[in-house]
């Protein structure tokens, strides 16, 4: 039986990850270890969480440019409340998550009810969140709250001697829940339907308004959570955290095989898209002589290849219909 065509992009993504990892293992000593794999998760936990939220947005046919700024705002609000106002983390973290969700749903509502391109609305959201950071403070706020430092330093040892961080575990849980949601719940399927055709979704009686707003709410929530995780990682709040991060996130989703026009793709693909970005960075750091900007060039190249691949696949799909 030939490979089902709908799986081609995700299979390409997974193969790409395996090839890169294997190639890295052959080339560098110490590359092939469980710990390197775990580090991919530890270092990219916040990217994974944000990309999961972004996957839903892109699957629904939209885009969210505000995620990077939202992360920065979350770190800033957390740091400010915990450090400067002495609020307990138990209160601060839910509050930050709530803020992210509310911010996202606000953007979703504007997008849906006023029919303004998601690009523009989330661009405004991006400016807004970034600007609000500076309203709180222009400088870095370092966190030395015991809860935050404890979470940051906790290493959970796995059988085999490698370890993983709490943030990575949160990210894995988020990814698992998202995969389930996308595949096994009505909300998830409605997101796909919306990305396939908004007009049809409306005529099939699907809750278009609710789904669309939910998608941006989810993305806002995810980026706020990513901000919390990022706070654990950096132990500081700063308005310049995660600048340009929305591009990394979108790239991870697209390299994960999700169609930027919506409707096609898998959260699992996004997971591997994030890992591929991580592997590229790891290889470059192992190489030593290669500089970090190669990451961007390679990611740009992969973006190009995947967009082209999808273009070719969808062109063949539509020619079949004729």
């Amino acid at each position: 039986m030939s490979l089902n065509r709908k799986y081609i992009p995700i299979v390409v993504t997974i193969l790409l990850f395996i090839i890169m990892f294997v190639a890295g293992s052959f080339r560098y000593t110490g590359f092939f270890s469980l710990q390197v794999l775990m580090n991919l998760l530890i270092d990219n936990a916040f990217l994974l969480i944000t990309a999961v939220g972004m996957s839903f947005v892109i699957l629904s046919g939209g885009i969210d440019l505000s995620v990077g700024s939202m992360i920065a705002l979350s770190t800033m609000v957390s740091a400010s409340l915990v450090q400067q106002h002495g609020w307990p983390p138990v209160v601060v973290i839910p509050l930050v998550l709530l803020m992210g969700a509310a911010f996202g749903s606000g953007m979703g509502a504007i997008i849906h009810y006023f029919k303004i391109q998601p690009f523009i609305v989330t661009l405004a959201g991006m400016f807004m969140a970034r600007g609000l950071c500076y309203v709180i403070s222009i400088d870095t706020i370092t966190i030395d709250n015991s809860f935050y430092t404890a979470v940051a330093q906790t290493k959970i040892t796995l059988p085999g001697g490698s370890f993983i961080s709490i943030s990575a575990i949160i990210a894995l849980i988020v990814a698992a829940v998202a995969i389930y949601t996308a595949h096994y719940t009505r909300f998830g399927r409605n997101v796909y339907a919306l990305g396939g055709s908004e007009q049809s979704s409306l005529l099939m009686g699907l809750p278009v308004a609710r789904t669309k707003i939910m998608v941006y709410t989810l993305s806002g929530l995810c980026s706020a959570l990513a901000g919390v995780v990022f706070t654990f990682y950096m132990l500081s709040g700063y308005g310049l955290h995660a600048v340009g991060f929305e591009l990394d996130t979108i790239a991870a989703v697209v390299i994960g095989g999700t169609l930027l026009t919506g409707g096609v793709g898998y959260v699992l693909g996004t997971f591997f898209g994030v890992l591929i970005q991580g592997v590229i960075q790891t290889i470059i750091s192992f190489e030593g002589t290669l500089s970090s900007w190669w990451t961007k060039i390679v990611i740009g190249l992969l973006l190009f290849i995947f967009i082209l691949l999808q273009r070719v696949l969808s062109a063949r799909g539509s020619s079949l219909k004729r």
């Binding site: 885009i63 690009f119 340009g244 591009l247 979108i250 790239a251 930027l260 026009t261 500089s291 970090s292 900007w293 190669w294 990451t295 961007k296 060039i297 390679v298 990611i299 740009g300 190249l301 973006l303 190009f304 967009i307 082209l308 273009r311």
Partner: peptide, 27 residues
Amino acid sequence: VGGIQPIIATLILMVAGRGIAQLVTGG
């Protein structure tokens, strides 16, 4: 010619271009 949405098509160069610029300047 490619018929790719402008946002998506120019996103490629937006991401890669930054890297190219850093490549040129050697960081």
